[in-house]
Simulated scan of single mutants.
Amino acid sequence: MSSSRNTNRLAKKIRNQTSLTLSTASRLARQANVYLGSSVTDATDPHQRRLEAHLAHVLASGFKDRQLNGALLGVREAKPDAQGLHLTLESEMADEFLRELLPRFDHFYGGVRGVPGLRVRGSNERVVLHDALSAAQVTVTRTDHSRMRLPSARDGEVLLWQRAPGGLSREEGQEAEEWVDSGGSADLRVRDLLLSRILRCPGVVNRTAEPHGFANCYTHHSGDLVIEWCCGDTMETLCANLLAHGIADGLPRRQAIELLSRHSAHLGDRTVILNRHNSCLCGRGAAEIAEYIRKGYES
């Protein structure tokens, strides 16, 4: 923060919206390096929040530790617009970004991969990913403004986004129902709000991947997203920056944040799980690992 006044304001905000004590809130606030007031702008439409949350969830389990240039979910910049959300993608990850999201039936996997009901409009440098059953949509472009390339089918795949452009295929319907099944998450409103905010805060979450160019993210089920890293921001610093950006705004206080240790925290009652290792996992091999990831995208 730029001044003690801003630090004190953030500490009070954290204390008021969470179950943390004032001393703990003050410790976190001193570690934040963003201004209070730069809160994320939420989508007002619940269908838009749900689509963005589903995108973040699928990208996390798809990219895992295969990021390039520090783009945790493949996103460099997120800007709300009149129609939904505009994402600027890390150019080297853009093709894989579309492949991970657009729904396809994978016969080897035995089910649907991607976001059920996600469809495509546009081409060339600007692609609109939209929900087949609502007005929710996300526009994507590359950082280098080059052409977006839609994925082709691999062995054993059926591209459902081409097969059923005007609605959900039978295979997608079941997947879509599981995403909105409250049995998979204790509070769907909290899940959709938090995961949508993660997608809308790339400048903060990408800090976990900056030191090496990659980190690690994954999911256990439809109700969570895990971010793990080893170098750079401490877990408390990341939490402080997320809280300063409004990650916990409007959440029930008891669900907002739980600091389990110096290296682990839960946001939204385990919706977002943050884990920072206490030692470097890459050593001097980070550059070689990044080059291996890059070659994997080129193949």
Rank of each mutant, 00 (worst) to 15 (best):
A60G: 15
M93A: 07
G70P: 04
S196G: 12
P211E: 09
R163A: 14
R284S: 08
T44F: 06
Y297M: 12
I273M: 07
I227D: 00
A56M: 04
R262C: 11
W179S: 00
R253M: 06
D81K: 11
L194T: 00
R270Y: 10
D144T: 08
H57G: 06
L87I: 14
R104C: 05
A244Y: 00
P80S: 12
N33T: 14
H107E: 10
E172L: 01
A136F: 03
S196F: 03
P211G: 11
S182M: 12
E291M: 13
L193V: 07
G246T: 02
T141H: 05
E100M: 08
L59D: 02
A11Y: 00
L36R: 02
H130L: 07
S152P: 10
S182D: 08
R200S: 06
L243Y: 05
N278G: 13
L20G: 03
V190L: 11
H245F: 05
T234M: 11
N278R: 10
L260Q: 09
C230T: 06
L160P: 00
N8P: 03
L193C: 07
A136L: 10
L36I: 14
I273F: 05
V158P: 01
G283D: 13
H245C: 09
A186K: 11
V226R: 10
G283R: 10
V204L: 09
G184K: 03
M148V: 13
L85T: 05
E172I: 00
V58K: 03
L68Q: 08
G285F: 13
R147E: 12
I293A: 04
F214N: 02
G122W: 04
T139F: 05
N16H: 13
H145Q: 15
M148D: 06
S261W: 12
W229R: 06
T237K: 10
R27T: 11
L101A: 11
R27W: 04
L242C: 05
S185N: 09
L267Y: 03
A265W: 00
T7N: 14
E228T: 13
R49I: 04
V34W: 03
G183A: 08
C201W: 01
G232C: 04
I289H: 07
H47N: 15
R284M: 10
S169M: 14
S3W: 07
S39G: 05
R76I: 07
A265N: 03
L160Q: 01
A286E: 08
V58P: 01
N275A: 15
S264D: 09
D45I: 07
A176T: 02
V190D: 00
H277R: 10
L150W: 11
Q255Y: 07
K295D: 15
F63L: 15
P46M: 01
A135R: 09
H212M: 09
L259C: 15
E178A: 15
A209E: 05
Q174P: 05
A60K: 04
E157N: 12
R207E: 12
G296W: 07
D233K: 05
R121C: 13
R197P: 01
R163V: 06
C201E: 04
C231T: 05
L199K: 05
E172H: 02
F214D: 02
Y292Q: 11
T18I: 09
G183I: 04
L73S: 03
I14R: 00
A209F: 08
I14S: 00
L72P: 02
T219A: 04
E125R: 15
